[in-house]
Protein backbone atom coordinates (compact mmCIF):
# COMPACT_ATOMS: atom_id res chain seq x y z
CA UNK A 1 0.00 0.00 0.00
CA UNK A 2 1.25 3.49 -0.82
CA UNK A 3 1.56 5.98 1.97
CA UNK A 4 0.39 8.91 -0.08
CA UNK A 5 -2.65 9.80 -2.15
CA UNK A 6 -2.02 11.25 -5.61
CA UNK A 7 -4.42 13.48 -7.47
CA UNK A 8 -4.53 14.86 -10.97
CA UNK A 9 -6.96 17.75 -11.00
CA UNK A 10 -8.35 19.60 -13.99
CA UNK A 11 -8.42 23.29 -13.19
CA UNK A 12 -10.00 26.26 -14.87
CA UNK A 13 -9.86 29.82 -13.54
CA UNK A 14 -13.10 31.09 -15.04
CA UNK A 15 -15.84 30.04 -17.47
CA UNK A 16 -14.02 31.50 -20.47
CA UNK A 17 -10.43 30.56 -19.69
CA UNK A 18 -8.66 27.37 -20.78
CA UNK A 19 -8.42 24.38 -18.50
CA UNK A 20 -5.07 23.04 -17.25
CA UNK A 21 -3.95 20.13 -15.10
CA UNK A 22 -2.16 20.06 -11.77
CA UNK A 23 -0.99 17.14 -9.66
CA UNK A 24 -1.09 16.95 -5.88
CA UNK A 25 0.07 14.42 -3.33
CA UNK A 26 -1.02 14.22 0.29
CA UNK A 27 -0.21 11.79 3.10
CA UNK A 28 -2.37 8.66 3.17
CA UNK A 29 -4.97 8.45 5.91
CA UNK A 30 -7.53 5.68 6.26
CA UNK A 31 -11.11 6.75 5.68
CA UNK A 32 -10.34 9.68 3.38
CA UNK A 33 -12.91 10.48 0.75
CA UNK A 34 -12.37 12.84 -2.18
CA UNK A 35 -13.81 15.88 -0.38
CA UNK A 36 -11.83 15.33 2.81
CA UNK A 37 -8.70 14.97 0.66
CA UNK A 38 -9.55 18.16 -1.25
CA UNK A 39 -9.84 19.90 2.12
CA UNK A 40 -6.27 18.86 2.91
CA UNK A 41 -5.11 20.11 -0.48
CA UNK A 42 -6.80 23.51 -0.15
CA UNK A 43 -5.16 24.12 3.22
CA UNK A 44 -1.70 23.76 1.69
CA UNK A 45 -2.14 24.04 -2.06
CA UNK A 46 1.28 22.99 -3.29
CA UNK A 47 1.60 20.82 -6.39
CA UNK A 48 3.69 17.65 -6.57
CA UNK A 49 6.52 19.62 -8.13
CA UNK A 50 6.52 22.03 -5.21
CA UNK A 51 4.72 24.97 -6.76
CA UNK A 52 2.41 27.01 -4.51
CA UNK A 53 -0.88 27.44 -6.34
CA UNK A 54 -4.36 28.81 -5.72
CA UNK A 55 -6.61 26.62 -3.53
CA UNK A 56 -8.76 24.24 -5.57
CA UNK A 57 -12.39 25.34 -5.87
CA UNK A 58 -15.23 22.83 -5.67
CA UNK A 59 -18.72 22.62 -4.29
CA UNK A 60 -19.89 20.59 -1.29
CA UNK A 61 -22.36 20.85 1.52
CA UNK A 62 -23.99 17.91 3.31
CA UNK A 63 -21.08 15.42 3.05
CA UNK A 64 -23.48 12.50 3.24
CA UNK A 65 -24.76 12.20 -0.31
CA UNK A 66 -28.10 13.87 0.22
CA UNK A 67 -27.60 17.39 -1.17
CA UNK A 68 -26.06 16.55 -4.56
CA UNK A 69 -23.64 19.50 -4.49
CA UNK A 70 -20.26 17.73 -4.70
CA UNK A 71 -20.89 15.77 -7.89
CA UNK A 72 -17.89 15.60 -10.25
CA UNK A 73 -16.00 13.22 -12.53
CA UNK A 74 -13.74 10.92 -10.55
CA UNK A 75 -11.48 8.76 -12.67
CA UNK A 76 -13.87 9.50 -15.49
CA UNK A 77 -17.01 8.40 -13.64
CA UNK A 78 -19.65 10.76 -12.36
CA UNK A 79 -19.95 10.53 -8.55
CA UNK A 80 -20.58 12.44 -5.36
CA UNK A 81 -17.09 13.19 -4.14
CA UNK A 82 -18.07 13.04 -0.45
CA UNK A 83 -18.93 9.35 -0.69
CA UNK A 84 -16.09 8.43 -3.07
CA UNK A 85 -13.69 6.67 -0.70
CA UNK A 86 -10.02 6.92 -1.58
CA UNK A 87 -9.44 3.24 -0.80
CA UNK A 88 -11.82 2.31 -3.63
CA UNK A 89 -10.07 4.43 -6.28
CA UNK A 90 -7.10 3.87 -8.57
CA UNK A 91 -4.34 6.46 -8.29
CA UNK A 92 -3.55 9.02 -9.44
CA UNK A 93 -7.16 9.96 -8.81
CA UNK A 94 -8.28 12.10 -11.72
CA UNK A 95 -10.78 14.82 -10.84
CA UNK A 96 -12.66 16.79 -13.48
CA UNK A 97 -15.74 18.99 -13.42
CA UNK A 98 -18.94 17.56 -14.87
CA UNK A 99 -18.76 17.97 -18.63
CA UNK A 100 -22.40 18.73 -19.43
CA UNK A 101 -22.66 21.93 -17.44
CA UNK A 102 -20.75 25.21 -17.75
CA UNK A 103 -17.67 25.38 -15.54
CA UNK A 104 -17.68 28.17 -12.96
CA UNK A 105 -14.20 27.53 -11.62
CA UNK A 106 -12.07 24.38 -11.27
CA UNK A 107 -14.43 21.56 -10.24
CA UNK A 108 -17.45 23.81 -9.69
CA UNK A 109 -20.14 23.87 -12.37
CA UNK A 110 -23.40 25.74 -12.88
CA UNK A 111 -26.39 23.38 -12.79
CA UNK A 112 -29.03 26.09 -12.89
CA UNK A 113 -30.57 24.44 -15.95
CA UNK A 114 -31.81 21.55 -13.83
CA UNK A 115 -33.74 23.92 -11.59
CA UNK A 116 -35.10 25.92 -14.51
CA UNK A 117 -36.41 22.68 -15.96
CA UNK A 118 -38.18 21.86 -12.70
CA UNK A 119 -39.99 25.15 -13.22
CA UNK A 120 -40.81 24.43 -16.85
CA UNK A 121 -42.18 21.01 -16.07
CA UNK A 122 -44.31 22.29 -13.19
CA UNK A 123 -42.99 19.60 -10.88
CA UNK A 124 -45.15 20.43 -7.87
CA UNK A 125 -48.57 19.65 -6.45
CA UNK A 126 -50.95 22.60 -6.76
CA UNK A 127 -52.44 23.45 -3.38
CA UNK A 128 -54.82 26.29 -2.52
CA UNK A 129 -52.53 27.55 0.20
CA UNK A 130 -50.22 26.45 2.95
CA UNK A 131 -52.84 26.59 5.67
CA UNK A 132 -54.54 23.71 7.39
CA UNK A 133 -57.71 22.49 5.70
CA UNK A 134 -58.33 20.11 8.61
CA UNK A 135 -58.15 17.09 6.39
CA UNK A 136 -55.25 14.85 5.51
CA UNK A 137 -54.12 13.92 2.02
CA UNK A 138 -55.84 11.00 0.26
CA UNK A 139 -54.84 7.57 1.50
CA UNK A 140 -51.87 5.89 -0.16
CA UNK A 141 -51.22 2.16 0.07
CA UNK A 142 -47.86 0.92 1.31
CA UNK A 143 -47.24 -0.64 -2.09
CA UNK A 144 -47.88 2.67 -3.82
CA UNK A 145 -45.63 4.41 -1.30
CA UNK A 146 -42.88 1.87 -1.98
CA UNK A 147 -43.11 2.59 -5.71
CA UNK A 148 -43.04 6.39 -5.46
CA UNK A 149 -40.91 7.19 -2.39
CA UNK A 150 -37.72 6.34 -4.25
CA UNK A 151 -38.46 9.05 -6.83
CA UNK A 152 -38.68 11.67 -4.11
CA UNK A 153 -35.07 10.90 -3.17
CA UNK A 154 -33.64 12.60 -6.29
CA UNK A 155 -30.86 14.95 -5.15
CA UNK A 156 -30.67 16.99 -8.38
CA UNK A 157 -27.04 15.99 -8.76
CA UNK A 158 -27.14 15.70 -12.55
CA UNK A 159 -25.39 12.33 -12.79
CA UNK A 160 -28.13 11.01 -15.08
CA UNK A 161 -27.63 13.97 -17.39
CA UNK A 162 -23.85 13.72 -17.37
CA UNK A 163 -23.98 10.24 -18.91
CA UNK A 164 -26.94 10.87 -21.23
CA UNK A 165 -25.86 10.91 -24.90
CA UNK A 166 -28.84 13.15 -25.77
CA UNK A 167 -28.15 15.82 -23.13
CA UNK A 168 -25.51 18.37 -23.96
CA UNK A 169 -24.61 21.96 -23.25
CA UNK A 170 -26.11 23.27 -26.46
CA UNK A 171 -29.53 21.63 -26.58
CA UNK A 172 -32.74 21.83 -24.55
CA UNK A 173 -33.25 18.19 -23.60
CA UNK A 174 -34.60 17.94 -20.07
CA UNK A 175 -33.52 14.37 -19.44
CA UNK A 176 -34.28 11.69 -16.89
CA UNK A 177 -34.19 14.01 -13.86
CA UNK A 178 -37.26 15.89 -15.03
CA UNK A 179 -39.10 12.89 -16.44
CA UNK A 180 -38.75 11.14 -13.07
CA UNK A 181 -40.19 14.14 -11.22
CA UNK A 182 -43.10 14.35 -13.66
CA UNK A 183 -43.72 10.65 -13.01
CA UNK A 184 -43.72 11.29 -9.24
CA UNK A 185 -46.15 14.20 -9.40
CA UNK A 186 -48.42 12.55 -11.96
CA UNK A 187 -48.66 9.50 -9.71
CA UNK A 188 -49.67 11.48 -6.63
CA UNK A 189 -53.43 11.26 -5.89
CA UNK A 190 -53.97 15.04 -6.14
CA UNK A 191 -50.84 15.88 -8.11
CA UNK A 192 -52.30 13.97 -11.06
CA UNK A 193 -55.05 16.59 -11.44
CA UNK A 194 -52.49 18.70 -13.31
CA UNK A 195 -50.84 15.84 -15.21
CA UNK A 196 -51.69 17.35 -18.57
CA UNK A 197 -49.69 20.53 -17.86
CA UNK A 198 -46.59 18.52 -17.08
CA UNK A 199 -47.03 16.24 -20.05
CA UNK A 200 -47.38 19.23 -22.33
CA UNK A 201 -44.08 20.53 -21.02
CA UNK A 202 -42.52 17.22 -22.05
CA UNK A 203 -44.00 17.22 -25.54
CA UNK A 204 -42.14 19.93 -27.43
CA UNK A 205 -38.51 20.75 -27.92
CA UNK A 206 -36.32 19.24 -25.23
CA UNK A 207 -39.11 16.85 -24.31
CA UNK A 208 -39.30 13.12 -23.83
CA UNK A 209 -39.24 12.32 -27.56
CA UNK A 210 -35.56 13.23 -27.58
CA UNK A 211 -34.71 10.38 -25.20
CA UNK A 212 -32.57 7.93 -27.14
CA UNK A 213 -33.20 5.07 -24.74
CA UNK A 214 -29.49 4.56 -24.03
CA UNK A 215 -30.39 3.71 -20.42
CA UNK A 216 -27.11 5.07 -19.05
CA UNK A 217 -29.02 7.26 -16.59
CA UNK A 218 -30.37 4.42 -14.50
CA UNK A 219 -26.89 2.90 -14.20
CA UNK A 220 -25.33 5.90 -12.49
CA UNK A 221 -28.12 7.27 -10.32
CA UNK A 222 -26.60 7.39 -6.81
CA UNK A 223 -30.03 6.88 -5.26
CA UNK A 224 -30.82 3.94 -7.56
CA UNK A 225 -33.99 5.59 -8.81
CA UNK A 226 -35.64 3.43 -11.49
CA UNK A 227 -35.37 6.20 -14.06
CA UNK A 228 -36.11 4.00 -17.06
CA UNK A 229 -39.38 2.88 -15.46
CA UNK A 230 -40.36 6.54 -15.24
CA UNK A 231 -39.29 7.20 -18.82
CA UNK A 232 -41.38 4.26 -20.08
CA UNK A 233 -44.42 5.22 -18.07
CA UNK A 234 -44.29 8.94 -18.79
CA UNK A 235 -43.69 8.12 -22.48
CA UNK A 236 -47.01 6.27 -22.52
CA UNK A 237 -48.69 9.13 -20.65
CA UNK A 238 -47.44 11.60 -23.23
CA UNK A 239 -48.74 9.42 -26.09
CA UNK A 240 -52.19 9.24 -24.49
CA UNK A 241 -52.09 12.99 -23.88
CA UNK A 242 -51.32 13.60 -27.54
CA UNK A 243 -54.36 11.54 -28.49
CA UNK A 244 -56.52 13.32 -25.90
CA UNK A 245 -55.37 16.68 -27.25
CA UNK A 246 -56.23 15.57 -30.83
CA UNK A 247 -59.69 14.50 -29.90
CA UNK A 248 -60.19 17.66 -27.92
CA UNK A 249 -60.59 16.00 -24.55
Amino acid sequence: MTNTIRFKIKRQDSPDSSPYWQEFEIPYKAGHNVVSALMVIRETPVTRDGKKVKPVVWECNCMEEVCGACTMLINGEVKQSCSALIDDLDQPIVLEPMSKFPVVRDLMVDRNRMFENLKKSKAWVDIDGSWDIHEGAPRISQEEWDRTYIFSRCITCGSCLEVCPQFDKDNDFMGAQIIAQVYLKNTHPTGKFKSADRLHALMGKGGIAECGNAQNCVEVCPKEIPLTTAIGDVGRQVTFQVLKDWFGK
Binding site: W124, V125, I127, S130, W131, D132, I133, H134, E135, G136, A137, S152, L184, K185, H188, T190, G191
Partner: peptide
Protein backbone atom coordinates in the same frame (compact mmCIF):
# COMPACT_ATOMS: atom_id res chain seq x y z
CA UNK B 1 -51.30 17.75 7.09
CA UNK B 2 -50.25 20.69 4.94
CA UNK B 3 -46.96 18.99 4.10
CA UNK B 4 -48.91 15.91 3.15
CA UNK B 5 -51.06 17.93 0.76
CA UNK B 6 -47.89 19.29 -0.84
CA UNK B 7 -47.16 15.72 -1.84
CA UNK B 8 -44.57 14.82 0.78
Amino acid sequence: RTFERMGV
